[in-house]
Design a binder for these strands. Structure first.
Lengths: 240, 240
DNA sequence: ATTATAGTCTAATTTAAATTAAATGAGGAG
DNA sequence: CTCCTCATTTAATTTAAATTAGACTATAAT
């Protein structure tokens, strides 16, 4: 057993060589996990990717399972944070459907361009062992809450078509986004096209047509202010 | 090595006790594969599920990999056949968007209610080894072709919104459907609700609003005949 | 210059799973 | 009844990977 308590950076000026190695291992694990799946993730592959020998991993993580669990946790946590920040940056009176637009865009951008972690967490949600899964569900739930709120707000504002079961619609949308990591590849089409198409698909898939919406929104007293400008603002604030 | 060539049913009155055992192993493998992933699928688990001892598997399949490959192949092949049959059963002049409706419904019903195979094939597409993946891609492609055609036809008929990249839109829709297996559970909501919501989401997500469509369809000379009745007909013909 | 400590390595050890070998039961053909 | 073939079992064998033990190296404080 290593001297310091594993699973935590030891002394930690939080970016010491040690901290960077730990991060390198975590990155490597995310890389492997996202491609090979839970059972297929070998410490030897992680080590190779991180340019160390396999036993060195144990200096930082007490077991394979602990390492994988941290990867998955970090995956959803960072994704949630990324999307949450983008939403928080929107003006308070942003139209609910524009907020959904923003979430769609940021989820896709983070998942596809930035992070193996998100992909690892998403792809393996279904095949990790029971206990890990249970703990993971808590974090997953937090991200789910964001979307639940987004959809709920749209519904309250009368912007959600009435024939949609909100929970089902939300999961279908998240599925479309999550699955993108399975087929998208930077070499065969720009991320912008994916984002643009996804936003349009979701907006029209969920939303009532403009004329109907007018009535509903007025009825519930929710304003349609900042309709188009808000979405642009979000993108600019996080990617400009 | 077994006497008969493995990987094929031996003598085969095609439902002999032997044939049934083989099918039982295949079912078991689909069950395990869909839950544990490629690397996590142990022959001992498959054997337990099939109520035999692990080495018995080798009487029917020459290796673990061959067994898994057949499961995945069968998964997509049967899904494709199921959807294709439903589409073929539609009247020839069915509106393209109604055909998509039908495909959405049948894909979901087959995947969620009928078959571990589809789930196994879908979930593991990304994590099987290179060679198996390559062969699998061929079969996946055949199913993809069906959807490519569906979307293309909708586009030709002027029923597809212009701001959608057809390929991206198609993959997003398939993602929404494929992912459903990750979250849907018969105990927490009826399949009918999922199907209904998905159909609505997809139709409105892809389609132009009715008034615009009229013009476009007329322009390309495609009739809107059998608009609503067709979708009902499809459901009835395969599930009624 | 010496030594303590963090960080890493090489060389076991252990364990789990696939695969193979060889033996056994069950049912039909002679 | 006895033999043959199919189907399946139990008992090796092999291999791959996680984990552990113990040694080595660099750095920096004394």
């Amino acid at each position: 057993m290593p001297r310091k308590s594993a699973d935590k950076p030891p002394v930690d000026p939080s970016d010491s060589k040690s901290a960077r190695t730990r991060e390198r291992i975590l990155d490597a694990a995310a890389h492997v996990l996202s491609r090979k799946g839970y059972a297929g993730t070998r410490l030897s592959d992680v080590a190779e990717q991180a340019q160390i020998q396999a036993p060195a991993i144990y200096y930082y993580f007490s077991s394979r399972e602990v390492l994988i669990e941290e990867v998955m946790w970090v995956g959803v946590a960072r994704l949630r944070q990324h999307v949450a920040e983008a939403l928080d940056a929107l003006p308070a009176d942003t139209d609910p459907m524009d907020r959904i637009d923003t979430a769609v865009e940021e989820h896709l951008r983070y998942q596809l361009a930035i992070s193996d972690f998100a992909t690892a967490a998403i792809r393996n949600a279904g095949q990790v062992p029971e206990d890990l899964r249970t703990r993971q569900l808590a974090e997953d739930g937090r991200y789910g809450d964001i979307w639940r709120t987004l959809v709920q707000d749209a519904q309250k504002a009368g912007g959600l078509r009435a024939d949609l079961e909100p929970r089902v619609a939300r999961m279908l949308v998240l599925g479309a986004l999550n699955w993108a990591a399975e087929w998208w590849n930077p070499r065969q089409g720009s991320l912008d096209v994916v984002v643009r198409t996804a936003k349009s698909l979701v907006r029209h898939g969920l939303g009532v047509a403009a004329d109907q919406e007018l009535g509903a929104a007025r009825a519930t007293g929710v304003s349609r202010a900042r309709r188009t400008t808000a979405a642009k603002g979000s993108t600019a604030s996080t990617h400009g």
